[in-house]
Simulated assay, not measured.
Amino acid sequence: MKKLLFLFTLVSAIGFSQNDEAYVDSLVAQKFAELELQQNQEYFYRKDYCLGKVMIFNMPDGNLCTSSSTYYAVYVFWKESDSVLKIQKFDNCGSFRPIPISRSKVFIKAIEDKEALMTGEVLPYKGEQVDENATGNMSVQSCHKAYKFVLDGEPFEKKFREYDLTNESKYKNVNAEHNNSLKLIKLDALLSELIKSFEDNGKFFRER
């Protein structure tokens, strides 16, 4: 009891905030509204989350911040010029500084087929066999990605479970090849590599 009281006193003294998905969505909506006012014709976000995953951070002002139930990381991308793309991260604890990157030919090619991005659907994991003697002890981490695009002024949304792209169950996922051939998933792989590089190298800095 004394340890709990001490922890509560410590948290109260240094400051503590806790924010949910609605808070993150509000920050991203503000950014989208700003891009819309600028009449930007190419912007989108990717929202990453694993249900039940909680994160806690030391903030620049010395306070603590944690996600409420689930941690959400949203990466907004927009065309700054013909040669420059910008990325900005948002999460349960606020916004990060925008980062300029090259709007490369690889990236342009990844999003140029808007119709393929719109119509391609990730199919659910389907094992090539049904295990009638399944023990039910295999756990599946419920990690998701959600996209919202505004390309040529036209908005559309896509989402999928990361598990549906894999072959991690006892039996081969018959939909894995289809899923991983989709334009959306190829774009997702490109973004994942970029985001991982920025995260690993500490490129995301919180705005004060």
Rank of each mutant, 00 (worst) to 15 (best):
G120F: 02
R206Y: 07
P60G: 07
Q18T: 08
I56F: 14
K183D: 13
F198L: 15
V11F: 15
K183S: 15
K170Q: 10
A73H: 05
Y75C: 02
V122H: 00
E199V: 14
E157M: 08
D48Y: 15
F198S: 01
S81G: 04
T70Q: 09
A110T: 05
N175R: 06
P98C: 14
M1N: 14
L7I: 13
S67Y: 02
G127C: 03
S102N: 11
S102T: 14
L85A: 00
K31A: 12
A33S: 11
G127K: 01
F6R: 07
K2T: 08
A176M: 08
N175G: 05
F204V: 06
I195G: 01
E34H: 04
P155G: 11
Y45F: 07
Q18H: 13
E34T: 08
K3G: 13
D113L: 11
F156Q: 02
K3S: 09
A13S: 08
N92F: 01
Q88T: 03
F107T: 03
Q88Y: 04
C50N: 09
V84I: 10
Y163P: 00
L37S: 13
K31H: 06
N133K: 11
S142G: 11
K172R: 10
I56W: 10
L35E: 01
G52N: 09
S169R: 06
K183I: 10
M1R: 12
V28T: 01
M118D: 09
L190I: 03
L5Q: 08
S181V: 05
N167H: 04
Q41P: 04
N133Y: 14
E112A: 15
E154F: 12
I101K: 04
L7F: 15
R46V: 07
N179K: 01
F77L: 08
P155N: 09
K89L: 10
I108S: 11
L184Q: 01
G153Y: 02
Y49R: 03
I87F: 00
S12Y: 06
Y147G: 03
N19S: 07
I99T: 04
